[in-house]
Design a protein around this nucleic acid. Structure first.
Lengths: 203, 203
DNA sequence: TCATTAACGCAACTGGAGTCCCGTTATGAG
DNA sequence: CTCATAACGGGACTCCAGTTGCGTTAATGA
């Protein structure tokens, strides 16, 4: 098999190709947020993006493939992190950021759809894990700083602490279904900080 | 509209109808666990259940409709709860039960698929919320008991504590993707207990 | 600027999920 | 037991998501 050809869009990625990709990913995000993962139709996305449906099918093939590419794109744009000087302050800032994202009328449904897509397709799951690994690594230093200050015990796993802040918010989004407000986010941060100080996240 | 007819299966629910429902729900569970939500085909389920596909389409109509019915069935079967006498003990028992369920080769994928289905359909979401509300209410008394013992402060929300135990495990199942083992479950229980004792879940 | 060909877009085509029709089975009331 | 009809099953049919073929546009390198 010496005549293997590269993926479409990789040989001439400039100009039109880039514009098409941008338009399609934008349209895919909109459609995901509005209609959800299962009602997604690649032809509809093509129409929204002002692009031939053949192009979408040829370059991304399936819905999970397209979502995986969208996640890769999203992983690239980083969020700036605040540094308050205390673990509770930092975790509260993190919780509030997640809260405002998940309760946003576009981002909330979008993230729900992204997680849904990841649950259905290994390739998308990998992209989602990469996305959250990057986010987690961005927030981990505030736990490391707390260790250095002696606020939490040596051997505390920063990843676990950061996840403990987000997890209950995602639980509400995906399972419980009730609203994700700021008091809730603050309580989550407080719980994680308390548990961390008590040494619950040591290996 | 005086000629509105009842849902199929409600007028003559005995004998054959009940057998069909049982077989179809069983097949649906198997298919969900094996193939996941998005690859579900009602005709395939009918074949597995040894039932005409027309029957499945007529009684349940859509995939989410069938999943919602499966969840209603699952909500009925209750799990017995252990009482250890300490909050940490009770929460650890709860965490280990969730852990063993989510890491089971059939139940894990099944729950992932159920949550996925709920994210795509309001009717299924309601059924899922009912299912977890029942489970939460079953576990809440162990927090109430801890309040009575003076182990955690007055005003602690039992629901929040119980959710805090499960949430990180579901986070792993749906987002992080890494294995859900018993040490992990124990850490989660310890974190929830520590946070509860520290008054993080008071309203 | 020009040639090469990657990438796009249109329109016709295909396969299979979901629907419909109608004959058969068997439930439950009298 | 008998009857009316709820519920089931097989198979034909429909409709549209996804594919294919081919002509057109434009990215890239010389």
């Amino acid at each position: 098999m010496s005549d293997e050809r590269p993926d479409p869009g990789t040989v001439r990625p400039g100009g039109r190709t880039a514009k098409v990709r941008e338009a399609v990913l934008r349209a895919a995000g909109d459609a995901l947020a509005e209609d959800g993962f299962d009602r997604l139709d690649l032809a509809e996305i093509a129409r929204r993006a002002g692009v031939g449906k053949t192009t979408v099918y040829r370059r991304w093939g399936t819905v999970p493939g397209l979502v995986a590419d969208l996640l890769t794109e999203m992983a690239e744009e980083s969020v700036s992190r605040t540094e308050t000087g205390s673990l509770l302050g930092d975790l509260t800032a993190q919780a509030r950021l997640v809260q405002s994202t998940l309760s946003d009328s576009r981002q909330g449904p979008l993230f729900k759809a992204l997680i849904t897509a990841a649950a259905c397709d290994p390739q998308t799951a990998e992209a989602l894990q990469r996305f959250y690994r990057i986010r987690t690594e961005e927030w981990a230093p505030c736990v490391t700083a707390a260790i250095d200050r002696g606020e939490v015990p040596e051997g505390t796993d920063p990843t676990e602490v950061v996840r403990a802040v987000s997890a209950p918010l995602y639980y509400r989004l995906l399972i419980a279904g009730d609203p994700i407000d700021q008091p809730m986010a603050d309580r989550t941060a407080k719980a994680a900080a308390t548990a961390a100080r008590g040494g619950a996240f040591t290996r």
